[in-house]
Structure formats: structure tokens, C-alpha cells
Amino acid sequence: MSGPLLQVKGLSTHFFTQEGVVKAVDDITYNLAEGETMGLVGESGCGKSVSALSILRLIPNPPGRIVAGEVLFQGQDLLQMGDDEIRQVRGHRIAIIFQEPMTSLNPVLTVGRQISEALELHLKMDHKRALERSVELLNMVGIPDAGRRIKDYPHQFSGGMRQRVMIAMALSCDPKLLIADEPTTALDVTIQAQILELIKNLARETGTAVMIITHNLGVVARYADWVNVMYAGKIIESAQAGELYAAPRHPYTLGLLASVPRLDQPRKTKLAPIEGLPPDLSALPPGCSFRPRCPYAVDRCAVEEPPLLEVAPGHTAACWVDVRVAKKTAGVVHG
């Protein structure tokens, strides 16, 4: 197949609430190639989950609505599909792992039943074969004694094991794309490392493309080939992981990288936080949304919104200023 696996073009998803229109996702465009791992980073509420859920049309309506855009998956626009068609895509060609495994597993069904159900539905396996395959999958994600454990219910597993069950379910139908929405935030660091390593290895073996959603810049550095940084509903920087970390071009990315302490660097006496607060998505300032917190802001930023433009080959950023040469301007507007 030629062309990228997933092409998201001008996707906008808004929530129509009493307080006003929340532009949770506002005109985002990106591609994801087959077998590639993309990291989607940004702080809480910037639209990461909504952008992922929009791909599968899992936005609650009302109050939400995908108001514009195309989502081409293997060349087909998912937003134009009939309900039956999109249901065939979900959990089969595109699988999603949610942040909180307990809420996404059915508490009254055994783990074996939950995995085998999808296999029977999507791959038309008979019940016996589906159960066998379920055991194989649980083995693959490192659940010991899987043959016996398929009869257990989700609450009988630890948080890390539940997350592994979710991964087994997600991978059960050989998806072409796996979306992992903060797959490890609720887990301990050592378990987190286990799970991410597992996703990476399985994706490599099966050639599955992966979208990892996280606010942890370290996780992205370790696992992603490509990074999209989101702020206030928009992608504000996009580059190959190596390039993004070595030569960030958006002040927000720069700020994020500077604000976290790093184990591999000499300890600093002070961290360099991003001042101020993330914006209210229903009352965005004119111009660039990051301007009130931006140490490089110039007059133009208050009136004209910067487009996402190529700043180096394969590297785009949405900023009027060239942070490599610009001086920090004083007067950040607080809170």
C-alpha cells in the first residue's frame, strides 16, 4: 500500500456547552505511517484524548461534534463511513487502550470471555478456537498461568495485569493501528516500563502503528519515532523525536523540556517553570493561544494566529518567532 496508514486532515471537534463552544480539537493535521510510533504530548485538557476518540468517532454527541476534517485510514475516510462500517474498524483494524483499565473492562464478564468475544465477532472464530487464542494472547502479554486466569474477573487482577489484559484485547485482532491513551499513567514506574516495553516489542513484531498519548516527555523520548505537541486544541510542533528534543522550535515545547528535572543531567538549584496557566478552551485569546505564557511573545502574537509551518525539513512549528535567535521578552501575563 502506498501513502501513510492514517491521514488526519483539518480535524476539528468542538463541544457545545452552556459556557460556550469548547474548541477541544481545532484544525489538526498529521500523518502516521505503517509501523511507526507517534507520541502525542501536551498538558491536561489540551485535546489529546478528544483527538484520538474523534478518529474512531467515539465523541459523545451532544455535547460534542466533529465539525470539520477528514480521517483517512488506509485511504478511506472514517468520518464518512456508515455506523456498521465504523464498528468493524473499531477494535479490529484500529484498537484503543484507555487510560483507566478498570472502567474499560466489563466487571461482570470473565477476562477470557471479553477477549474471545472480540475474536468471535471480528475474526469469526468459533468459541473453542477463540478461547485458545485468548490464552495465547494472555501468555504473550506475560500473564502467568493464563489457562486458569481466563476464568477470572477483572477485579481479581492487579492494575498492571489489567492493563496487560487490555493490551491483549487490543492486539487480539491484529490491528493496523493501536492507540494507547496514557496507557501507564495510573501505574508504577517499574510496571510502566514493563507495559511500554511490551507494547513496543509487540508492535515491532506485528508491524502495528502506535499512537502513544502522554504528558510524560520521557516516555515519548523512549518510545516514539515521531512527536506531535499539542497546546489548546492545536498541534503546535511536529517533528521526528530526535529532532524535536535536540532542536525544539516552539516556545511551549522549549518550556516543557526545560521544566522537568532530568536524571542524566547535573542537578540545578532551580527549575524553569512555564509561568501562568493553561488557557480556557472556550475563551481563547486572539492570536496565539500560548502568548499569555510565552517569554518570547512579540506584538504580532496578540493579533495573528501563527500557522504550522515547516522550520526545517520534516519539522513544523507554529510560532512567529525564531527561538534560536530571539531574546526573551519580559512581561509574562500571570494566571
Binding site: G160, T190, I191, R222
Partner: peptide
Amino acid sequence: KALLSAVPIPDPLVEAKRERIILTGDV
């Protein structure tokens, strides 16, 4: 040692060269 090695470092170049101890089993 395992705890320290599990902390990802926000730099792909550093990460690519890092030795990792991945524990098995649960807490």
C-alpha cells in the same frame, strides 16, 4: 537500580544508549 532505570529520560539520544532493567512480575 530497577527504579532508576525505569525512569525515562526526555532525550531520545540518551534513551537509545541506555541500559534498562525491566522487572518481571507484579508488586
